[in-house]
Amino acid sequence: MNNSVKMPPSAGKAAVEQEIRRRSRRSFLLAGAAALAGLGGWRWLISRPTEAGVPWPLRRVLEANRQLSAEYFSHAHLAPVFANQRARMPRTNGSAGMQSALDPAAWRLRVRGFAPQGSPASSQEFTLADIQALPKVEMVTELKCIEGWSTIVHWGGARLADFVARYPLATRSGTLSQSAEKNDLASYVGLATPDGGYYVGLDMASALHPQTLLCYEMNGQPLTEKHGAPLRLVLPVKYGIKYLKRIGTIAFTNQRPADYWAERGYDWDAGH
């Protein structure tokens, strides 16, 4: 400061002007370079080969999000339940896998038991009466569509967990017990419509969640054909895209099952 006072005013002014130019030039060049680098990074990102419908770097982050949720969140968390009078009929938002007419009398639920490499494959067929013989669970939860709308619905059905306990098709040993070794239980469940036109995959923890139902009643009435008669999946811990209608087959497996919407760029997990 004292130096500038001793300088002739003109020299000081020139020095200040020079400093302004020098710092401006440096900063704007750096800002320009940063903007170009950002633009380059963006173009690189959007041009990457896709993995399950989105550029792979994005898919990796989404997969990390899923892992973080799986590590951090508990599968014991229950979805909120609501008063029964708030229940409404949700819109029917899709008919994939239900193009053919339903023949309720001929309908059977076909379940493929867990059969890791080498072990014999088992499979079993069930009628709706078999499912209805399991303890009936009623709950009023919010169906959340991945599109962003939601409807509170009163569901009635049997827990998938109770089904698995009663018919131990999900384990290698054929029994479902706490003491069984860890890899005795299948890691995934795949469900599909009878014609295979719509299919969803679930992680076992979500499948065995206490609010995951094999549902045969909505708002006190038997399922209508449009809402997935005779049996549909309901699991409030995931988006509606996983609520498979007209269940035809259930398969327990260690390979992550194919999923209709995951093949179209959506999150395979679709949990929330």
């Binding site: 419908g53 989105v54 994005l58 982050v61 999000n65 919407w261 760029g265 959506y266 999150d267």
Partner: peptide, 10 residues
């Protein structure tokens, strides 16, 4: 929608 969600959650 799927594209939007993928960018949003990254």
């Amino acid at each position: 929608l799927a594209q939007g969600m993928s960018w949003h959650f990254v």
